[in-house]
Design a protein around this nucleic acid. Structure first.
Length: 800
RNA sequence: GGGCCGGUCGUCUAGUUUGGCUAGGAUACCGCCCUGACACGGCGGUGGUCUCCGGUUCGAGUCCGGACCGGCCCA
C-alpha cells in the first residue's frame, strides 16, 4: 500500500468496477423474496449542471441504499430525470432560434439537448460514488414509455371522474405565454405607484386608491367595508368610472381592508385573486382587459398597448381629466412567475379553456395519508398541512407549451365532453392523432377536437412511486414494493412534488405512496445564501472530487442535521480527507502483520486493552446502527470518526505496538493481530455506506481473500452480538494511564521513544491493581525502566 | 399580517425530547514534538456561561412566559 492515499485513482477504479456485471450483483434489485426496500429518489431537472445540492441528495440516497443492502434488504434505488419544462424550451428557443410553432422539430431539439445534459449530470453522479440500479430503474420523463404511464394515469383519473375542462380565470404569464399553477407562483417586491382616483357619485365624490388604473375599463364595482362609517352614505349608490364613463355600484363587503389606501377598493375582472372571489360572490360581469401577450383589449384607445404603457398613458389622461388626485410611491408584493424559471413576470388573470384535476375534493385524503407517514423532520408534516389547507383552486394541469407530455384527451367542442384514447394507442398526441370516435358520445355532435396543451411537469413527476414500483407494468412487484419505504426530497418542494404525489398516488391506488419521508435542507453557497449563477456562489462537486475525493465530500455533507440548510464549506471536506488518510495509514500499518491471520478471537486470550477496544467497537456498532436506522447520518459519521481516530488509532494502536514489535509471546502477538484485524474488518463495513470507495479498496486488499464477498458492499453490516462478550473497564484504566504518561512526557519535552528511568503512578487500590497487572505493557509503550505505585489521587510523575 | 425553524467558544456544531458530574467536539489560532502507520500526524494550550429579561426548581443551555434578531414558507 502506498504511504499517501490518492482518492482520485482509487475512486475511479471502483466506480468503473461497480458498473461491471460482476459487481452489479451487489446493486441489482433481484426480487428474490428478501424484504424489499424502495427509495423514491428525486429526479433532478435536467439543467446540465449537478451542483452540491444535487450531490447531497444523491449521497443520502446512495448511503441509505448501501446500508439497507448490507442489512439484508432487496433495495430498489431508482434514478430518474425530470426533463420537460420551460427552462429547456427557452434554451432551445434561444440557442437554435427554432419557433415553437414547428412542434416536432422543436421537441426533437429539446430531447437532443436534454440527452446531453443527462450525460453530463450522470457522469458527476457516478463520480460521487452514487450507484443506483441504472440498469433496471432509470427513467426519463420525456421518453415515450414515461408518457404512456403519465397518460395512463390521467385516463384512470378521468375514469374516476376527476378530470375536467373549463373556462376559468387562470394565472397567466404573458412572457412565457402559458397558464401557471398556484405552485409556480410567488410574491416579489416591486416598486410601484398608488394612484388616488376620483369617482363621481353625482353630488359627492369617492376617492379610490389603486395600483392598476389601466384596469379601469374592467372596473365592475367599488367596495367598502360595512364597518367603515366614513362611507356608509355611499353604499348602494352608482359611481361613474373615470375616462370610460360607465356606472358601477358601491358594494359593501367585509373583506375590504379599511386601512389600505382610502378604504375604498375598485373591483376589476381581473386584477388579482381577491377580484375573482368578489366577482363570484357579487355575480359581477366579466370584462377581459389583458390578452395572452400582455396587451390591452376592450379598452378603447388603449387597446393594443402593453399593460405598462397603458398605465403610463391612462395616468396622464386621468390627470388631464382632473380625476387623478395624487400619486404616491409604493412598494408592494406582486404575484409573479417565480418558480422554476427566472421569468419573474407579474402574472395576469385570463379567462381560458383549461384542463383541471379535481384536487379540492381530496384535501382530506391527502391529510389522512400524510398523517400516517413518518416525517423527518417532524415539522415538515405541518408545512404540508398548512399548504393543503390553504389551497383554493383545483389543480390546473394544462400548459400552452411544447416540451411536455401531451394531454391525452379529445373534447367535444359543443358540450366539452372528454374523450379518452384507446389504451393500445398510448402515448398519443391528440393534436395530430384522429379521435377514436367520430361523434360525441354524449351530445352526438361531430366537432371533436384534440389539444396542443401539454401537462404541467408535476403531472409527470407526481407518479414516480408508481413508476418505480411497477404499477403500470408489473402488478406482482407493485404488491410487494408499494407503498415505497422512503421518499427523499428537499423542503422547498413539499407543496409541489410531495403534495401532488400523495394526491395522485392515493387517488389512483387507494393507498398513500410513502411509509416515510426524509426532507432535507438546502446546500447554500459558502456565503450562506442560496446558490445562484448570478451571485457566483455555486459550488459544483467536480471542484473538490479530484482534490479531496468524493468519500471526503460525502463525510462533509453528512455533518449537517437533516432538514436544516447548510452553507457549504471546504473545511469539513478537508477534515474528511484527513480521516481517509488516517484510515489508510492505519490499514497500511496493520497490513504488515496480517500473515496467517485468523478471524476468531477468544476473550480468554485477550489482553485488557484488547477487551477495551472490542467493547468500544461494539458500542460504535450499536450507535452507528441506531443512527443509520433513524437517518441521523451526522451522528453516525461523528461516532465512527471519533471511535476510529481517537480511540483505535490514538490509543489502541499506540498501546499495541510493543506486542507486535517486541512480543512477550508469539501467542500474545497473534491475539493482538487478530484484534487489529477484527476492528478494521468491522470498521470498514460500518463506514462503507458513507465512504464506499476507500472501504472497498481496503477490503479488496486485506480481506477479500479470506471473506470471499465480491465487494464490501455485498457483505453484512456488523452486529455487536457477533463479537465476544468482554469487560473493558480494566483496559480503559490502563489506556487512560498510558495517555496520561504520554502527555507527561510531552510536558517534559521528551520524545515518546526517550528512555525514562522511573515513573511513579498514583491511584486507588483498584486502579493500581490494574496498572500492576499490565506493567509490562505500560513500561514498553512508554520506555520506562521502573515503575512505582502510590495510593492517592490518580496521577503520574516521571523521574529521569 | 399568519405559520414554522433556529439563535451555544472567532467560525461550524453536540447536548434541549426524559432539567443534575467542571457545557463536549471540530476548525482556526498559539506552543512543543518528524516517536519504527500517518506532519493530510501526535501532545498540550488560549477561547464560550449557552441572544436578552422574567418565572418554576435544591438545581436550567435544557421546562414555562415575554422581548429581540436571523432564515424559510404562506397571505
Amino acid at each position: 500500500m502506498d504511504k499517501v492515499y490518492s482518492p482520485r485513482a482509487v475512486e475511479e477504479k471502483w466506480q468503473k468496477a461497480w458498473m461491471t456485471e460482476e459487481f452489479y450483483q451487489a446493486y441489482k434489485f433481484k426480487n428474490d423474496g428478501r424484504p424489499v426496500f424502495t427509495i423514491d429518489t428525486p429526479p433532478p431537472f435536467t439543467s446540465g449542471e449537478l451542483h452540491m445540492g444535487h450531490a447531497y441528495w444523491n449521497v443520502i440516497n446512495d448511503t441509505v441504499a448501501r446500508y439497507k443492502r448490507m442489512t439484508g434488504h432487496d433495495v430498489i434505488l431508482p434514478q430518474g430525470w425530470d426533463c420537460q419544462g420551460l427552462p429547456t424550451e427557452l434554451k432551445v428557443q434561444y440557442r437554435w432560434k427554432i419557433s415553437r410553432e414547428d412542434r416536432d422539430l422543436f421537441r426533437r431539439k429539446c430531447v437532443e439537448w436534454t440527452a446531453n445534459m443527462i450525460d453530463s449530470m450522470k457522469r458527476t453522479m457516478i463520480r460521487l460514488g452514487y450507484r443506483p440500479d441504472w440498469e433496471q430503474f432509470e427513467y426519463r420523463t420525456m421518453d415515450k414509455s414515461y408518457w404512456r404511464a403519465v397518460q395512463e394515469s390521467l385516463i384512470q383519473m378521468h375514469e374516476k371522474g376527476l378530470i375536467y375542462r373549463k373556462e376559468f380565470p387562470v394565472h397567466w404569464c404573458s412572457k412565457c405565454g402559458t397558464a401557471l399553477a398556484q405552485a409556480e407562483l410567488g410574491y416579489i417586491q416591486k416598486k410601484g405607484k398608488l394612484y388616488h382616483l376620483r369617482f363621481s357619485l353625482g353630488d359627492r365624490d369617492l376617492e379610490v386608491a389603486t395600483t392598476r388604473p389601466e384596469l379601469l375599463n374592467a372596473c365592475q364595482a367599488l367596495a367598502v367595508n360595512p364597518g367603515d362609517s366614513r362611507y356608509s352614505w355611499a353604499v348602494g349608490k352608482d359611481a361613474t368610472v373615470p375616462i370610460f364613463g360607465h356606472k358601477v355600484k358601491v358594494l359593501s363587503d367585509s373583506s375590504v381592508d379599511m386601512e389600505f389606501g382610502t378604504g375604498v377598493v375598485m373591483i376589476c375582472t381581473y386584477g388579482d385573486e381577491q377580484d375573482i372571489r368578489w366577482q363570484q360572490i357579487h355575480k359581477l360581469p366579466v370584462i377581459r382587459s389583458v390578452d395572452e401577450y400582455g396587451r390591452m383589449v376592450n379598452a378603447g384607445k388603449y387597446s393594443g398597448m402593453k399593460v405598462s404603457d397603458a398605465r403610463e398613458q391612462i395616468s396622464k389622461d386621468l390627470e388631464a381629466e382632473g380625476s387623478l388626485i395624487s400619486t404616491e410611491e409604493f412598494v408592494h408584493n406582486v404575484l409573479a412567475h417565480t418558480e422554476r424559471a427566472d421569468c419573474m413576470t407579474p402574472i395576469e388573470f385570463l379567462t381560458k379553456d383549461q384542463w383541471f384535476i379535481k384536487s379540492m375534493d381530496f384535501k382530506e385524503t391527502v391529510l389522512r395519508e400524510a398523517e400516517r407517514m413518518g416525517w423527518i423532520p417532524e415539522f415538515v408534516h405541518g408545512r404540508l398541512v398548512d399548504w393543503v389547507e390553504s389551497i383554493e383552486w383545483d389543480w390546473l394541469i394544462s400548459r400552452q407549451r411544447v416540451f411536455g407530455t401531451p394531454i391525452p384527451f379529445w373534447f367535444c367542442a359543443d358540450c366539452n365532453y372528454i374523450i379518452s384514447p384507446r389504451r393500445e394507442d398510448l402515448p398519443v398526441d391528440t393534436s395530430s392523432t384522429p379521435p377514436p370516435v367520430e361523434r360525441c358520445p354524449k351530445c352526438g355532435g361531430g366537432r371533436i377536437a384534440g389539444t396542443t396543451d401539454v401537462c404541467d411537469c408535476w403531472v409527470d413527476s407526481s407518479i414516480t412511486p408508481l413508476i418505480v414500483t411497477g404499477y403500470f407494468k408489473d402488478r406482482g412487484l407493485f404488491e410487494r414494493a408499494y407503498p415505497v419505504d422512503l421518499r427523499q426530497q428537499g423542503h422547498d418542494i413539499v407543496r409541489t412534488w410531495m403534495y401532488y404525489t400523495i394526491l395522485r398516488c392515493s387517488v389512483l391506488t387507494g393507498t398513500g405512496p410513502f411509509k416515510g419521508a426524509l426532507v432535507n435542507g438546502h446546500i447554500l453557497g459558502p456565503d450562506g445564501t442560496r446558490m445562484s449563477k448570478s451571485k457566483g456562489n455555486v459550488i459544483i462537486p467536480e471542484q473538490g472530487i479530484n482534490q479531496y475525493g468524493s468519500d471526503a465530500i460525502r463525510q462533509a455533507l453528512f455533518s449537517l442535521t437533516i432538514g436544516s440548510d447548510f452553507p457549504f464549506k471546504w473545511e469539513p471536506v478537508k477534515y474528511g480527507k484527513s480521516f481517509l488518510q488516517k484510515l489508510w495509514s492505519s490499514a497500511r500499518f496493520a497490513e504488515g502483520f496480517f500473515s496467517g491471520r485468523g478471524t476468531k478471537i477468544s476473550p480468554r486470550a485477550m489482553d485488557e486493552t484488547d477487551k477495551w477496544i472490542i467493547s468500544r467497537l461494539k458500542e460504535a456498532i450499536c450507535k452507528s446502527r441506531d443512527a443509520m436506522e433513524k437517518y441521523q447520518f451526522h451522528i453516525a459519521v461523528d461516532v465512527l470518526q471519533k471511535f476510529y481516530w481517537h480511540e483505535f488509532c490514538d490509543q489502541y494502536i499506540e498501546a499495541v505496538k510493543p506486542r507486535l514489535y517486541s512480543p512477550r509471546s508469539a501467542e500474545d502477538k497473534a491475539v493482538a493481530v487478530t484484534v487489529l484485524y477484527t476492528v478494521i474488518w468491522n470498521f470498514i463495513r460500518l463506514l462503507a455506506p458513507i465512504c464506499p470507495h476507500i472501504t472497498e479498496e481496503i477490503y479488496q486488499k486485506l480481506f477479500r481473500d479470506e471473506m470471499g464477498f465480491v465487494s464490501i458492499h455485498a457483505s453484512p453490516y456488523p452486529k455487536a452480538e457477533e463479537l465476544p462478550e468482554v469487560d473493558g473497564t480494566i483496559g480503559e484504566k490502563v489506556i487512560s494511564m498510558i495517555a496520561l504518561l504520554r502527555s507527561r512526557k510531552v510536558e517534559s519535552q521528551m520524545a515518546l521513544s526517550a528512555e525514562v528511568r522511573m515513573a511513579v503512578i498514583h491511584g486507588n487500590s483498584e486502579e493500581l491493581n490494574a496498572y500492576k497487572e499490565n506493567e509490562w505493557l505500560i513500561r514498553q509503550v512508554l520506555h520506562i525502566n521502573d515503575l512505582e505505585y502510590k495510593i492517592g489521587e490518580r496521577d503520574a510523575e516521571l523521574i529521569r
